[in-house]
Design a binder for these strands. Structure first.
Length: 347
DNA sequence: AAATCTCTCAACCGCCGCTGT
DNA sequence: GACAGCGGCGGTTGAGAGATT
């Protein structure tokens, strides 16, 4: 049986026909909306009130904006989500012409993928914990000048910066994921498609790994990861009372770790974050966590902080040119959420 | 050209909170 | 306080379109 022919208690379900749409529009134009329970009968529709309300709210309302989300809207959604979580209706209230359903769909089908590919957990807006684990391992290896690295530019004093480290991690993770996706994440709170996300990551070959490593420019400023961290110990320079840090203003995971370790964490973390108040860095600015606690928080983390890559380094092999344009741009809108954001999240 | 896979998004479902009785 | 009705919200589903094999 097709969806359009589904009926229950004499009420039609499934896609709306143009005739039904017109009936609903005509009725609401004459009588206004509300009283959804009785509306269908009065309008001559064999639909439940709920269905009418949804059809009107998500599709027929005259002030609905159609078409692609702009970059500004996308940024706004990400930042609002970092503060509000899955409060789609509140997020929608801050984006004129967009519905909660539309935003929710866009989040699930586009933004979540992008963040994930960038090494960001779309639920918490923090670096994916599997990335952090690898960062820790790699960091230790690199700073110990481990002889197992055969790449000459990695020998001796490490000249790899943290953005490069992230790029390398993404490549490594692609290998790990491809070989056994179950190793990487077991997010109970992930959408079904999130497993596909993992599986869709490009397969990594030795050649790709070599390529990734070779993209690290030997003639870049010789700044170690540690120096990089110290230099950026106050990367935000924002008024934390009034302004959220722009997601894209973090160069890399290390910046975020520092941000998280500072007291400013509170201002852009939502109440039930399991990572909240965890000091992720030690005094040297190095990752400070134990794997088991991180892993245990992976499945339940529900809330967001912030972060992102802004600059030239792309975290992910699979990132499209379009995505690079979007997220690599230095001309980025600073969407100031908290100015005028009231208790319910409305601007 | 056909079969299969993947992705998108409109629509549904169940739950929750508010309000009136 | 208990209950019912209603509207709203967030999670999930699945048809259809497009992409790939």
């Amino acid at each position: 049986m097709t969806k359009s022919s589904t009926e229950k208690n004499g009420l039609k379900k499934g896609p709306w026909t143009p005739e039904e749409d017109q009936k609903l529009i005509d009725y609401i134009q004459k009588h206004g909306h509300g009283k959804w329970r009785t509306l269908p009968k009065n309008a001559g529709l064999r639909r439940c009130g709920k269905s009418c309300r949804l059809r009107w709210a998500n599709y027929l309302r005259p002030d609905i904006k159609r078409g692609r989300f702009s970059f500004e809207e996308e940024e706004a959604i990400i930042q609002l989500h970092s503060v509000l979580g899955n409060k789609w209706s509140t997020i929608a209230a801050n984006l004129p012409g967009r519905t909660d359903n539309e935003i929710k769909n866009y989040w699930n089908t586009h933004i979540k993928k992008k963040l994930f590919k960038m090494g960001i957990d779309p639920v918490t807006h923090t670096p994916r914990l599997d990335v952090l684990q690898l960062a820790s391992i790699l960091n230790t290896s690199l700073f110990n000048s481990s002889p197992q690295f055969n790449y000459p530019f990695l020998s001796g004093r490490s000249v790899i910066n943290s953005s490069q480290l992230l790029s390398l991690l993404s490549t490594l993770l692609s290998c790990q994921t491809r070989n056994n996706p179950d190793n990487v994440l077991n997010h109970n709170n992930f959408h079904q498609n999130d497993n596909q996300l993992l599986q869709n990551q490009p397969q990594c070959t030795q050649m790709q790994l070599d390529d990734t490593l070779q993209t690290f420019q030997p003639n870049q400023p010789q700044v170690s990861l540690q120096e990089n961290l110290i230099a950026k110990s106050n990367p935000l320079n924002v008024d934390h009372q009034n302004t959220l840090p722009n997601l894209w203003h973090y160069d890399n995971i290390s910046d975020l770790q520092i941000a998280q370790s500072s007291s400013t964490m509170q201002c852009f973390s939502s109440p039930n974050s399991h990572l909240e108040n965890q000091n992720l860095c030690n005094n040297e600015g190095m990752p400070n966590f134990n794997l088991s606690s991180l892993l245990s928080s992976t499945t339940s983390s529900s809330s967001p902080s912030t972060l992102n890559s802004s600059s030239s380094t792309t975290f992910v092999n699979g990132t499209t040119e379009d995505e690079r344009d979007t997220y690599g741009s230095s001309n980025i809108l600073m969407y100031n959420i908290s100015n005028g954001l009231n208790d319910s999240g409305l601007l």
